[in-house]
Amino acid sequence: MTTYTLAGLSRYPRFPLLHETTPIERLARLEQHLGPALNGVQLYVKRDDHMRVGGGGNKLRKLEFLLGQALADGADTVITVGGLQSNHARLTAAAAALAGLQCELVLTRQVPRGDADYEHSGNVLLDELFGARVHALPGSVHGLSWANERAATLRAQGHKVAVLPTGGSTPLGSLGYAVCAQEIAQQSQQMGLTLSQVIVPNGSAGTHAGLSAGFAALGLNASLVRSHAVLAEAAVSRQRTWELAQQALALLGSEASIALEEIDVDGAQRGAGYGMPTAAMLDAVRLLARTQGLLLDPVYSGKAFAGMLADVAAGRYAPGQAILFVMTGGAPGLYAYREAFATPSL
């Protein structure tokens, strides 16, 4: 039996947020529902929504490293940026509360909506419950620049501030998903499972990058990962993912390399843009909820799951192949999309 271990991880401080390996489960009821249309493909899900802090989600893996470094540097305040309904912002607020750090969120209106559900429900409600100071700004504002200016003000007042970019998708943050790749390799071996594909959404690129870097460093194939772009167009997401993956490999001290051609990003599910609902996303969210009792989110995992279903329907996978969807959390965002789910389709 192969031992899958990323030795390079041990040199980086971590603030524990996961507590345990997230489970891999078979989507048996969904398989039964799809029947012959599934063409014998096996569907599995890794429950990265199944975490104990802040409602769960993939950003916690990144925050283990980002907050670990912030605490090691003596920070007393963390500032991060994102869209108004950012999952990363919500989880940064929750993790900062657990770590005893002050948290400020710089949230820009990236989605053209101003209704009460979007402005005050979902993640925005939770940000405030977790004690974060929220700066809600127009979409024309460059969030990271504004955050750096705010950090300078706080530093002048004597604070030690860590600024985290969108999604926590830095090379260091991406190591959180190198850890996930290690978990998947270990779990699939224990289950006697050979995976043909690992599927994720691609927003700020850190999740895909970390997985590809982790698999490459373990001697596996970086192209095992396929992502569905939900923020930038596919070509931009692919380039950003590749750059982050190489930087994460360097942090791991790995001699492995990843070619741009190994970064598989599909842009067919993006729709009109970030945070904009699609009919396929709405159908995918309803389908998984009604067959498995599991909640996808409307911005990231809903579109990626729709992409996976489209790939299966198009015959991308052969009968008997097993594919793994990484559930990246974000369910609180559903409440901000109440109106979209109130109608059968767009």
Score class of each variant (00 low, 15 high):
16 P>K: 04
258 I>W: 01
74 G>I: 02
173 G>P: 15
144 L>Y: 13
17 L>R: 02
179 V>M: 12
286 R>W: 03
78 V>K: 11
25 E>L: 12
254 S>T: 08
335 Y>P: 00
184 I>N: 01
26 R>P: 07
343 T>S: 08
243 E>F: 02
268 A>R: 12
167 G>T: 09
289 A>V: 14
103 C>Q: 00
272 A>Q: 15
74 G>V: 04
317 Y>T: 15
212 S>G: 09
336 A>Q: 04
330 G>A: 10
287 L>P: 01
180 C>L: 13
259 A>I: 01
252 L>R: 02
27 L>D: 01
233 E>L: 02
194 T>D: 15
154 L>E: 05
3 T>D: 11
335 Y>V: 04
334 L>P: 14
23 P>S: 10
223 S>I: 00
129 L>T: 13
255 E>Y: 00
326 V>L: 15
15 F>V: 09
100 G>E: 01
171 P>F: 06
133 R>D: 12
224 L>F: 09
265 V>Y: 11
186 Q>V: 12
221 N>D: 15
180 C>Q: 07
153 T>K: 14
332 P>Q: 02
267 G>H: 06
297 D>S: 02
246 Q>V: 08
119 E>I: 07
5 T>F: 11
272 A>W: 09
43 L>Y: 05
254 S>K: 00
292 Q>L: 00
57 G>V: 05
235 A>I: 04
258 I>V: 08
122 G>R: 03
256 A>S: 15
182 Q>G: 10
257 S>I: 13
295 L>H: 10
154 L>Y: 03
168 G>D: 09
81 V>N: 01
286 R>L: 01
197 Q>G: 13
336 A>I: 04
240 R>E: 13
300 Y>H: 10
157 Q>C: 09
147 A>D: 06
104 E>G: 03
171 P>I: 05
